[in-house]
Design a protein around this nucleic acid. Sequence first.
RNA 1: GCCCCUGUGGCGGAAUUGGUAGACGCGACAGACUCAAAAUUUGUUUCCCUUUGGGAGUGGGGGUUCGAGUCCCUCCAGGGGCACCA
Length: 858
Amino acid sequence: MSRYNAKETEEKWQKRWEEARCFAVEEDPSREKYYVLEMFPYPSGKIHMGHVRNYTIGDVVARYKKAKGFNVLHPMGWDAFGLPAENAAMERGVHPASWTYDNIATMRDQLKLMGLSLDWDREIATCHPGYYAQQQRLFVEMMKKDLVYRKESSVNWDPVDQTVLANEQVIDGKGWRSGAPIERRKLSQWFFKITAFSDELLAALDELDRWPEKVRLMQRNWIGRSEGATIHFEITNQSGGRDDRLTVFTTRPDTLFGASFCAIAANHPLATEIAETSAEAAAFIAECNRLGTSEEAIETAEKQGFDTGLTVQHPFVADLQLPVYIANFVLMEYGTGAIFGCPAHDQRDLDFARKYKLPVIPVVLPPEADPATFDVGDEAFTGDGKAFNSGFLDGLGVTEAKRAAIDKLAAQGDGEGTIQYRLRDWGISRQRYWGCPIPVIHCAGCGPQAVPAEDLPVSLPDDVTFDRPGNPLVHHPTWKHTTCPSCGGKAERDTDTMDTFVDSSWYFARFCSPRAEGPMDRGAVDYWLPVDQYIGGIEHAILHLLYARFFTRALAEVGYVGVAEPFAGLFTQGMVCHETYKDGDGKWLFPEEVEKTGEGKAVHVETKNPVSVGRAVKMSKSMRNVVDPEAIISTYGADTARWFMISDSPPERDMEWTDAGVEGAWRFTQRLWRLVDENLESLPPAGAPQPGDLSDSAVELRRRVHKTVDACGDDLEQFRFNRAVARIYELANSLGAFKASDAGSLWALREGLELVVRLIGPMMPHLAEELWEQLGHEGYLVDVAWPSADASLVSDEKATLAVQVNGKKRATISLSVDAAEDEAKSAALAEPAVQRAMDGKSARKIIVVKNRIVNVVV
RNA sequence: GCCCCUGUGGCGGAAUUGGUAGACGCGACAGACUCAAAAUUUGUUUCCCUUUGGGAGUGGGGGUUCGAGUCCCUCCAGGGGCACCA
């Protein structure tokens, strides 16, 4: 009896597939296309289990669709620009380019070990000039279409390192390297006009019916369309020539009678103006700026305000003036950067009012509450109710009151109904080296000028150093100095590079024609786009996916593509988790440093000191709970790793990586091998015709086989890989237990073995090819069509129904499929257990659900 | 803080989408094979009650229904995103 040698076999088939160019594809208008794409990886060094899961799922889909007869495009590339390369440069002195390309080489080799059905001819890296040159062309063309503009916006500034920090580099308001308190600073930056598409991006979500509902919901909330009102409050005690009105946006104009203050953002123009003459205001604003730019930091900070001393006139109540505060929880980026506070009906306003002893006036009465005694306490009432304490609005519901308030404001000239979006334009300027240079030249006389097409690309200089803070492109002795394309005078290049989200906003289109001279070949994108199935992590649910949707629309305006939506189908897979280990000193340990001693206990491999075992969390370097895919593949083979990845947990759910699970998967590969190997000699030859009559047990086996084929196809279509795997286990159990003696059973056994091999093809492709060959077939299983089940063997003759009495199961009965209701009733009542449970009472009602259940109500 | 998701045996999960809860795998236990171990293999395995049999049970509490893991309300726990990580 031979043993399956995974390593040898996997190498053998990987080589053969490559030589036969099994996965290289071209446009073929005569065939239906299917574009499978997994989110391309950032080349961080080595592949991790998250990649293995992502690419296994994608590969199952790609191979399945290929077997279903589609012309399948399945490419791979590298999201190769980004911050970690610069960190490596600073920490280890390696050049970002060589660091990145080394990582790509390593990770490419690792991916190849997985046996993925990729068209490697189409490989791209976003840091390659061949890619980013095209991106610069797109930028220039978008500029011409007025989709790009320049404005000021805030960044996190590290005053010690003299550099801009990413949000993740700000920890508790301090720079991660310097530890210095960070400041908000304004810089002039480039923006993509994504808000021009707010409505369209929102409306089109309804059509994306192969996207997870939760992703569509998150995007809807992110775009955040809200109907409300802008209200102009007259400033009553101002001095000087400033604008005498404060404009706020609110979604609750119905609560205007409950207003007790107004608040403006720390970077509101009025705040800036006040700070010029008030040292206290300036100090407070500086304090707010220390919070950094992330919404999370701003909203979780304790609510604080600064009373400007200004007051504004309430538009409806003649003798009411409201104080104006500068507040740390008001965002300049949303609405008008100013709000009116109604503490009774907004939690943040309430917290603020309690702190600064401002009045809390309830103006919306919850249903069934008493207007005389109703009080909000510490919890604002945000639900629906009737307006009270509200003058002309009294008695109206929230919706009607909003309308009435807006009408009155408009009539008075104090405001109007407005639709506001939460979505902001996309700032893409980054003060970094390792990114796509922004192809713009700044001329003192002519202003910013796009680099002319014939001068593209603007290449990154190689000779840069990271020995001092700031952007190497700024420090470079010659790079930024150039001449103005318009006037010919001295000018400087824009030293910013693009956000790496730009790189990943069109790579799927580049894959259609990766070596095209322009950004993309129209014929190729018209054939391949949209991506039929996109697969990646849920962490990209909003930003990446929304930017790509915007960019595709921008590409359509520029004339490169004919579709608006890049991804027709989306699947978001869960994370790969692992237990965590800590030694007595609280130091994290790698799994290989830990030895299990049973019952959830563990010790250190060398010292034998006890180790505390923590629950499974997402694999991460910081907690050391990582398993190296390459080590797994070299021990068990790629098929085992792939099989385990999809076998237990549903792909959209988080999964736990365990040694026991991998070993179980490995045992199954061996079992399948033996199943074929042990029977090989007695089986009829491949392609032998079905013998005349089959024994009952052979027919029964065929039923199981064909039912499995039928159900597995459905499961794969619906991404229920774990169910398909369970069915294949069941089938393997049946095949293993089957006693074949006569010619008919041996024929049925061959059929069953061949079909199980074809079913595992997308999941364990190497083993499947090898077994297919063992079973006497020539050519590649990869080229064999997906099997279809014999319909006559899939349907059952008998159905088992549960019989309940008052909803409690008391017996089961076996009836022919679709048996009549009366037959089911009498069979149910004939059961002794049912009679016993009925306890002599008569049935008041009997509910019969065909082929499922009979419920007797007494 | 805001938005979104998840919760079923010792563990991962299944449940025909409102109709027999626990398929399949892992682990554990017992047996076979073996000098022994590994591998393989047979069986048992939600909990409680003494059994033929009965009761409880899908994070907690409540509701709708002939019937709820599935729908509604509420609470708890864990996770993802929050615009410069990718």
